[in-house]
Design a protein around this nucleic acid. Structure first.
Lengths: 136, 136
DNA sequence: ACTCACCTTGACGTAAACGTAAAGCTTGAT
DNA sequence: ATCAAGCTTTACGTTTACGTCAAGGTGAGT
């Protein structure tokens, strides 16, 4: 029997809509190591349930992981990502807290926009460099 | 007398076109520490001349520094930046070497383009997040 | 001569994000 | 019963890009 689909007691083909995932499932799907996932847990970014000792990741955990990895790709630190996740999950009551969140997001957007401009400039320079070399 | 403009024996106002710069000049202009500049030198990224012990940065060195910092902003490691600088300065004879350089640049451009897409996606998500929060 | 600002070279410290064993538990298959 | 696969925790190691002293040299102004 395949652990991948049996661990949650549900038999499904690999690419269907699963309800839960093992640590190896997610590490393979997202191309990260199991060590990384455990590290994210140590850092308070994900909190999968346990089946005995083994970690069981829900679809919500999986969505979180996608968030984390995208955050990393765009240059956020794990600490920043945790803050954003915490804010995302934060109590819906606190109006002030939400303001802070929104402001942080907007600051992020500005920063990302500037990063895009940097990337455009770098691409332009690389293009020019390539052209210069090929012309010789 | 101001060391900034006297160290090269030329008296000029601060924002004019200088011919040489002290380590403090450049660190202030680019918002990095002198330690960082020395580190870049240790790593073989810049090689300013010396006036006695003191480093004298030429305009070429200054342009290099701008390159380095842009490289960093778009996610290159110092090692990668050094490789690119080395390739940039490489012997103009070697045809094969130039091919490698061009290929590396193109790979970089692809990577940067993908990074831009990631950033766009992140911005879109952040936008949606902000809208969701503000709507409540 | 003396100070003071600015520079120098070590050399050890640090934070982030994991890598890499080491040693052991659990569970299903043979 | 035992064996391998897959999981676990604990814990020290690694890389990158500097920070942070410590201790001292140098050159211009008083």
């Amino acid at each position: 029997m395949n652990t991948r689909s049996s661990i949650a007691g549900i038999e499904l083909p690999d690419h269907s809509e699963r309800q839960s995932y093992s640590i190896t499932d997610l590490s393979e799907e997202f191309g990260v190591t199991a060590r990384a996932l455990r590290f994210y847990e140590d850092e308070g970014l994900i909190s999968p349930e346990r089946h005995g000792l083994s970690r069981i990741y829900s679809r919500r955990d999986r969505a979180r992981l996608a968030w984390i990895l995208r955050g990393k790709r765009v240059g956020f630190s794990l600490t920043e990502i945790r803050e954003m996740i915490d804010l995302y999950d934060a109590d819906e009551e606190h109006e002030a807290q939400r303001r802070v969140t929104v402001d942080k997001c907007k600051a992020r957007i500005d920063l990302l926009t500037r990063q895009k401009e940097d990337i455009d400039a770098a691409i332009a320079e690389l293009d020019a460099f390539v052209v210069a070399i090929e012309q010789r």
